[in-house]
Design a protein around this nucleic acid. Structure first.
Length: 572
RNA sequence: CGGGGAGUAGCGCAGCCUGGUUAGCGCGCCUGCCUUGGGAGCAGGAGGCCGGAGGUUCGAAUCCUCUCUCCCCGACCA
C-alpha cells in the first residue's frame, strides 16, 4: 500500500471534545470520525485494525469448535417479548415500527435470536453440544455515550452461545471460552485481568469479566495482590473489622437535630454519633415498589448489588415527594424504626449492631439507642456495600485495592433462562424433554482497539502491538525526489510485501520530519528509513515502541524486519 | 434525566460583554519558487447562511425568546 493513495487524514492539532486518550488519538491519527453522539465512522486504518482483531477472534473461536453465523441486526418484537426482555431492556433498546405498524428493534445482543434457531432446529441431545457465534454490529441507546469508541451506541461485538444437554457440558463450554478469550487478548497484545462479575439483566449463575486496567474505564475492580482474588465492585466482598457496641437504652430515644441533613452533619452535631454508629436509610423504588435500604453510615450502597439481592430489574432512588409521602419526613431525617409494610433490606455490616443513631421520620429529629434486631423489622439481609481500597481480602489475610478498568469481554453461564422462556427443549437419551443449557460470551471488538491505545501510547501517538497494527512496517524514503532513495525504497517495499509482511510505503513528497511524525502518530510498529546512509548500502530500522533505531545493510533489511516481527509477535 | 460548557472556513480558535462598512488569526488546502533527517521558508490564492427559527433595531455573529446538536460531571448502563 502506498501512503499517497491511502486515506489517512491526520490532524496536526489535538481535536477539541476528545478527552480520553484513545478518542483523541483515533481522531488525530485519522482512524475514526464521529457521525453523531456515540456513533463513529471507521476509516481505512481503523478498519484494518478491526479486521486484524476479528481475524484473531475468529481463529480462536474456530479452534474451540465455534461455528460462525451472521444474524439479523433488525429483530421483530415477538422474540424479545418471549424472553421478557422487550420490557426489561427499557430505553436502552432502539425501537422502530415497519410500514405495517409492527414493532421492531435493533439487536442489543442475540440470546433471543440464537435461542429461537436452536428451538426450531434442535430436537435431540445427539445434536448437542453446539457453539455458535457471530461478529456483528450491536445497538444500544446509551444514556450517555462517552470516551470516543469506548462507550458507544453502535458497536461491533463477537457474541457466542453454547448449547449443552447438561451442566457439565456448560462448564466445559465456559472453560473453553475462558481459555479462548485469554488467547485472543494475549494475541492482541493486551494486558488483562479476569474478574468475578454480576450477571445483571443477562440472568444466569456465574459470570466472569475480562478487564483492562485503565483510568479511561468505567468499572471498578477490587483485587488482591497476594492471592489473586479479583472481582468487579458490583460483586466484590471484603473483610472489615467487627464493631462491638456498648449497651444502649431499653428503647430508642428521640432527640432534636435542627438543620442536620447528612451523616457528616450528625457526626459533628452535639449528641450525634460517629458515622459507623449511624444507620443510613435510603429509599429506593424496586420495580415500582418502594423499599428501605439500610447501610452503615460510612458505607456506600452499590446499586447492582441491591438489584442482585432483591431480584429487581428496574431500580431507582426515590424522589423527595415520594419519600415524604411514604415516611412523613424528608431525606436527612429518615429511619426504619417502627416502619411496617415496606420492604426493608439491610446490609450485612449492620448485623447485630446496637445503640445506633438514625433518622426519626420526623424532620429535624433523630433516634439514638437503636438496636437493629430489636427495633427494625429487617426482611432481607444482603451484601450491599461497595468495597473500598484498603479493606481486607475476603480470601486471604491481605488487603484489597480498587482500580478502574475497561470491560473488554464478559462470559456468562446462562443456564436455562432463555431456553425455558422460549421453549428450546430437546429429548435426552432416556426420552425425557429438557431445556437446553446455555452460555453466552461477548467480546467488544472496538474496545480492544481502544484499550490497546489506552495502554500503549506516548506523546507522539499510538504504539500498536504489532499483531493488530494497521501495518507492521512503513518504508520511509527520507527524500522521495531522490531517485536512488526512491528506487531502493520501492524495491525494499516490494520485497517485504512478497515475504508476507504488511507494509506501507510512504511515497509522499513531504519533508522527512512530516513523514516521521505521521508514522509515529498512527503507530506503525517498525519503520525502515531509506536516507543518506544508502550510499553506504545501509538503511535504518526504527522501533516505534522503544524509539531506538539501528543501521542495517539494505541487503539484510527484509530478514532483519522479519526477525523483529516474529520476536514481537511471540513475546506477546 | 440533573448540573456545567460549547456551536464562527476542513481542524484549532479570536471577535460577542459595550450592535455599525468587506467577519479575523494559526494550521491545513490550491499555484509558483525554494527546500529535503523530526510537523521548513517566500510570494500569491481559494474557502463562511457566524447551528436553526422567531423577535428587538435604521442596522444583529454580537441583544432577547424558543429550538436543535455536541462535549464534560453525575444519574444510568450484559
Amino acid at each position: 500500500m502506498h501512503w499517497s493513495k491511502l486515506y489517512i487524514p491526520t490532524l496536526r492539532e489535538n481535536p477539541a471534545n476528545a478527552e480520553a486518550v484513545s478518542h483523541r488519538l483515533l481522531l488525530r491519527a485519522g482512524y475514526i470520525r464521529q457521525l453523531t453522539s456515540g456513533i463513529y465512522s471507521y476509516l481505512p486504518l481503523a478498519q484494518r485494525v478491526l479486521l486484524k482483531i476479528t481475524e484473531i477472534v475468529r481463529t480462536e473461536m474456530n479452534r474451540i469448535g465455534g461455528q460462525e453465523f451472521l444474524l439479523p441486526a433488525l429483530n421483530p418484537a415477538e422474540v424479545w417479548k418471549e424472553s421478557g426482555r422487550w420490557e426489561v431492556m427499557g430505553e436502552n433498546m432502539f425501537r422502530l415500527k415497519d410500514r405495517k405498524g409492527a414493532d421492531l428493534c435493533l439487536g442489543m445482543t442475540h440470546e433471543e435470536i440464537f435461542t429461537a434457531i436452536a428451538r426450531d432446529e434442535i430436537r435431540s441431545y445427539k445434536q448437542l453440544p453446539q457453539i455458535w457465534y457471530q461478529i456483528q454490529t450491536k445497538f444500544r441507546d446509551e444514556a450517555r455515550p462517552k470516551s470516543g469508541v469506548l462507550r458507544v451506541r453502535e458497536f461491533i461485538m463477537k457474541d457466542s452461545y453454547s448449547f449443552n444437554i447438561d451442566w457439565e457440558g456448560l462448564d466445559a463450554a465456559f472453560e473453553a471460552h475462558r481459555e479462548a478469550y485469554c488467547r485472543i487478548y494475549k494475541r492482541c497484545g493486551l494486558e488483562f485481568a479476569i474478574v468475578e462479575a454480576s450477571s445483571g439483566a443477562m440472568g444466569g449463575s456465574k459470570s466472569s469479566e475480562f478487564m483492562v486496567y485503565s483510568d479511561a474505564g468505567e468499572d471498578w475492580i477490587a483485587s488482591c495482590p497476594d492471592c489473586g482474588y479479583a472481582a468487579n465492585v458490583e460483586k466484590a466482598t471484603s473483610r472489615i473489622p467487627k464493631i462491638e457496641d456498648e449497651e444502649g437504652p431499653n428503647s430508642p430515644e428521640e432527640f432534636p437535630t435542627p438543620g442536620v441533613r447528612t451523616i457528616e452533619d450528625l457526626t459533628k452535631f452535639p449528641g450525634g454519633a460517629p458515622a459507623q454508629s449511624q444507620i443510613k436509610t435510603l429509599v429506593y423504588v424496586l420495580d415500582g415498589k418502594p423499599a428501605l435500604v439500610l447501610m452503615r453510615g460510612d458505607h456506600q450502597l452499590n446499586d447492582t448489588k441491591l438489584a442482585d439481592a432483591t431480584g429487581a430489574v428496574n431500580i431507582r432512588p426515590g424522589h423527595a415527594e415520594e419519600i415524604k409521602d411514604l415516611l412523613g419526613a424528608l431525606p436527612g431525617s429518615l429511619g426504619a424504626v417502627g416502619v411496617e409494610n415496606i420492604l426493608i433490606v439491610a446490609d450485612n455490616a449492620l448485623r447485630g449492631r446496637k445503640n445506633m443513631t438514625t433518622g426519626a421520620n420526623r424532620d429535624d429529629f433523630h433516634l439514638r439507642g437503636v438496636d437493629i434486631d430489636r427495633d427494625i423489622a429487617v426482611k432481607k439481609w444482603a451484601e450491599l456495600r461497595n468495597v473500598a481500597s484498603g479493606e481486607g481480602c475476603p480470601e486471604c489475610d491481605s488487603t484489597l485495592r480498587v482500580d478502574k478498568a475497561i470491560e473488554i469481554g464478559h462470559i456468562f453461564k446462562l443456564g436455562t433462562k432463555y431456553s425455558e422462556s422460549m421453549g428450546a427443549k430437546v429429548l435426552t437419551a432416556e426420552g425425557k424433554e429438557v431445556p437446553i443449557i446455555m452460555g453466552s460470551y461477548g467480546i467488544g471488538v472496538g474496545r480492544i482497539m481502544a484499550s490497546a491505545i489506552e495502554l500503549y501510547n506516548d506523546s507522539d501517538g499510538i504504539i500498536w502491538p504489532a499483531s493488530i497494527a494497521p501495518f507492521e512496517v512503513v518504508v520511509t524514503p527520507a527524500n522521495f525526489s531522490d531517485v536512488a532513495q526512491r528506487e531502493a525504497a520501492e524495491k525494499l517495499y516490494n520485497e517485504l510485501k512478497e515475504s508476507g509482511i504488511d507494509v506501507l510505503l510512504d511515497d509522499r513528497d513531504e519533508r522527512p520530519g512530516v513523514k516521521f511524525k505521521d508514522a509515529d502518530l498512527i503507530g506503525i510498529s517498525y519503520r525502515v528509513t531509506v536516507g543518506k546512509k544508502l550510499k553506504d548500502g545501509k538503511v535504518e530500522l526504527f522501533t516505534r515502541k522503544t524509539k531506538q533505531s539501528r543501521d542495517v545493510l539494505l541487503a539484510d533489511a527484509v530478514s532483519e524486519v522479519k526477525a523483529e516481527l516474529s520476536a514481537a509477535l511471540t513475546n506477546i
